[in-house]
């Protein structure tokens, strides 16, 4: 049923009629979803999706890195229930025309939700295929109006230790922050995900709204975002601050750049059982055709 309405349209192709259709679709889905307590809405497949078989709902929601809820892979599923995600708003500021606090519901009413089936490659050398629902980050940034001087975008996760017990520990500096170069942020592959498998984003996966940058290691795809700032300078990012030898600002998936902790040449796809074969890791996680141009002439071993 999720694919009863499919489209290959991108934001640039949007015509008044399709806006109308999408809106109707969104409202229709919304009406059904209200009964189910959902606001993720329906999803349409696009040309950016992989045709690889997605991981199961269980795999995607029971195996997470979300250190705000503990460092074990099973901790987020256990403890993220404590997080309140409504009301939710995102403070968009810095070098934008319309800075302010944007309510999550208002953002959702402006955006077209589509399905993006992306590979996710963790820096720990495991991977999944995940059917996200969301919208392009560019749409949100354009809504706020990016000023010409802006070169970078920084993101911040909610800081609420009473609901996120991991924030009482000091293994990372809180709140979690991440960042992208502006061209990376505006790239059509970069999305703000608000759901999985057509359902609302589960708390352990970064509810209600998170970043997904499929050609970068998973830690770049920051969860439960409350703040987005447009900047002229490269922002600080959490893992880079914690251990700069191991985690760079760019963190592009790259089988050739060595990591002091894990070889990045191959990866284990979650869900294959104990005898599943390792698969070779692809440059830019297989999204090279779309993104390699942005890094032309850059020494990727230096800017890792």
């Amino acid at each position: 049923m999720a694919k009863r309405y499919t489209s290959n349209l991108t934001w640039n192709d949007v015509t008044p009629e399709s806006v109308y259709l999408n809106r109707r679709n969104f409202l229709a889905g919304g009406a059904g979803a209200i009964a189910a307590g959902s606001i993720a809405g329906p999803a349409a497949a696009t040309q950016y999706s992989t045709d690889e078989t997605p991981n199961t709902w269980e795999e995607i929601t029971q195996y997470n890195n979300f250190y705000e809820f503990g460092t074990d892979k099973t901790d987020p599923a256990k403890y993220a229930g404590a997080l309140t995600t409504s009301p939710w708003s995102i403070e968009i500021g810095g070098l934008v025309d319309k800075p302010g606090t944007y309510d999550f519901k208002d953002i959702m009413s402006e955006m077209t939700i589509e399905e993006r089936i992306y590979r996710l490659r963790c820096v720990e050398a495991w991977s999944m295929v995940i059917p996200w629902n969301g919208f392009e980050l560019a749409d949100l940034l354009n809504m706020a109006g990016v000023k010409e001087e802006a070169k970078f975008v920084s993101f911040e996760t909610l800081y609420r230790p009473e609901e996120m017990w991991g924030q009482k520990k000091h293994y990372l500096v809180w709140p979690y922050t991440e960042g992208l170069r502006l061209d990376e942020a505006m790239h059509p592959l970069t999305i703000m995900a608000t759901g999985l498998y057509g359902k609302d984003m589960p708390n352990q996966n970064g509810a209600p709204i998170r970043l997904v940058v499929p050609w970068k290691y998973g830690f770049k795809s920051i969860k439960s975002i409350v703040k987005i700032t447009l900047l002229e300078e490269e922002p600080l990012t959490s893992w880079n601050v914690t251990n700069s030898d191991e985690y760079g600002f760019y963190a592009n998936v790259n089988p050739l750049v060595d990591h002091p902790r894990w070889s990045q040449a191959t990866e284990r796809r979650i869900g294959g059982g104990i005898f599943a074969k390792r698969i070779p890791t692809k440059m830019f996680n297989g999204y090279g055709d779309e993104v390699a141009d942005m890094y032309k002439g850059m020494d990727l071993a230096k800017y890792y």
């Binding site: 795999e59 892979k73 869900g271 104990i274």
Partner: peptide, 9 residues
């Protein structure tokens, strides 16, 4: 053994 049994083992 969870979603990634090899690591757990």
């Amino acid at each position: 053994m969870g979603m990634d049994p090899v690591k757990t083992i």
